[in-house]
Simulated scan of single mutants.
Amino acid sequence: MSNAPHYDIDVAKFWADPYPDLAKMRKDAPIAFVPQLGSTVFTRRDDIFSQEKRIDVFSSHQPAGLMNLLMGHNMMRKDGEAHMAERAAMFPSVSPRTVRDVWVRQFQAHADRILDELAPLGRADLCKAFALPLSAECLKDITGLTNMRFEDMDAWSQAMIDGIANYAGDREVEARCHAATAGIDAAIDDMVPVVTKHPNTSILSVLLAAGQPMPGIRANIKLAISGGQNEPRDAISGTIWALLTHPEQLALVREGKATWLDVFEEYARWIAPIGMSPRRVAKPWSYGGVDFEPEDRVFFMFGSANRDEACFDDPDRFDITRDTAKSIAFGAGPHYCAGAFASRAMVADVALPGIFARLKNMRLDPAGPVRIGGWAFRGLLNLPVTWDER
């Protein structure tokens, strides 16, 4: 175990709002062992930015980790050439060109259909009625699992996320994760002959065409689902909420003084949907006055890094005009999120301009308070709004 200073948290309070504790750690113990998490956490942006790239020390390869055991050995849990080979095989499906030439058009079609159904209602929880189905329908296309229901895509993603964070060993959580991975395997089995006969730009199709082994294909599709559903879902609902609660920021977009992409990048900094990335210490190492031992567990706290006072002025403020160049919402090293281009397009090119154009005078519904939670994955739990029916 590292000799980092200990910092105790109240787990429930940390889940509800981690930022006060993270600010204290950045100030007093930027590298700290948190007993309640069983991990040494990095909280300052520049420390994370430099050390995440030291894959010889802070390795993503975690053979005994819950992700490997429950979802299979995917590229997120590999380093070096093994990671890059699988990343390269997947790239044709999620490259900027494919996103621009293929996916944006399909994302737009899904958004238009969902908004057509929503517009006459005048009231909805946008987490469930817009962000969830849009993200899931888009991910069905990207993965190639168009035989799934969008409800299953979301539920199975959440079950896997819960499973890989199930450090307490809750058997019900583990059982739900196993049921989810079995459902995904069945969907893959159904679609393999379809995309083999009719190749497309989906992850399943391009990985099969690249000759990737089937266990790896299954594991990497599960990886894409586990992160590719919750992050854009939470970013869509979160950015809408941020603009509704900061009308002066929305006015900047409408006046042409900022872009929807500015909104997305600032929201991802302000409330990083993926707030943490785990690593395994691979060899003895000393950094920042802390000695690390092999097999120590480390958490790189992206959500803390993006509110580091040393890098961002008034970091707790949502400001779409700020320079977000130092944001590491998508990671900083070789494991930079492969789906970042698709996520940006889904939120900034499709979801935000579409919903603010279509739902006139959209506003928070005073009948139900907005709830938000999480620290490893953080997002809105509901977003009740009303708008003028036209």
Rank of each mutant, 00 (worst) to 15 (best):
R149Y: 00
A345H: 08
F292C: 04
G331A: 08
Y267A: 05
R317Q: 13
E255F: 00
R26Y: 06
M71T: 13
E172V: 03
Q106A: 14
G65W: 03
A124M: 08
R87D: 12
I355R: 03
L207C: 12
A186R: 12
C177P: 01
F33I: 00
M90K: 12
P334F: 09
L352H: 09
S226T: 10
V347H: 05
M362S: 05
D262N: 15
L364M: 09
Q249T: 11
A209S: 14
K140P: 01
I9V: 15
G288L: 09
R123A: 06
R171P: 04
L139R: 06
P273E: 11
D291L: 14
F14G: 14
V104D: 07
E172N: 13
E266T: 13
L207D: 00
W375D: 11
R280L: 10
Y7A: 12
D314F: 02
G303S: 06
V385P: 00
V99R: 13
A258Y: 05
H110M: 06
P215E: 04
Q249I: 11
T239C: 15
G211S: 09
I240K: 06
I164E: 02
T324F: 07
D313F: 04
A338L: 15
L204S: 11
F312I: 02
D319I: 01
R358G: 06
A357S: 14
G354D: 03
W241A: 15
D234R: 13
E309R: 08
D46S: 09
R358L: 07
Q229Y: 14
I161Y: 07
S2N: 13
P273F: 07
S135R: 04
A32N: 04
A4T: 10
L115R: 08
I328F: 11
A109F: 07
C138M: 06
A179D: 14
S205V: 11
A329L: 07
V41N: 04
A272D: 09
P384I: 04
K24P: 00
H83S: 08
E389Y: 00
F91K: 12
T181F: 02
A348I: 08
A338G: 12
V350A: 03
L383E: 03
R390P: 05
P273N: 12
A168Q: 12
R45L: 14
R363P: 00
A348Y: 08
Y167N: 13
L118I: 08
A180D: 01
L364D: 04
H73T: 14
R26S: 05
I203Q: 09
V253A: 11
C177D: 03
T259E: 03
S304D: 06
A111L: 08
A186Q: 13
L22A: 06
K326I: 03
L250K: 07
N361T: 04
R390G: 10
T143P: 05
V263E: 01
D388I: 08
I48G: 02
I31G: 03
S205M: 10
W241G: 13
H335L: 05
K326W: 14
D323P: 10
K326F: 12
W103I: 13
A367V: 01
M153W: 00
F58Q: 01
L380G: 10
L37W: 00
S135W: 02
D323H: 06
S286W: 06
L134C: 05
G368I: 10
A89H: 07
A82I: 11
R317S: 12
S157W: 11
I271F: 01
D349G: 00
A111W: 08
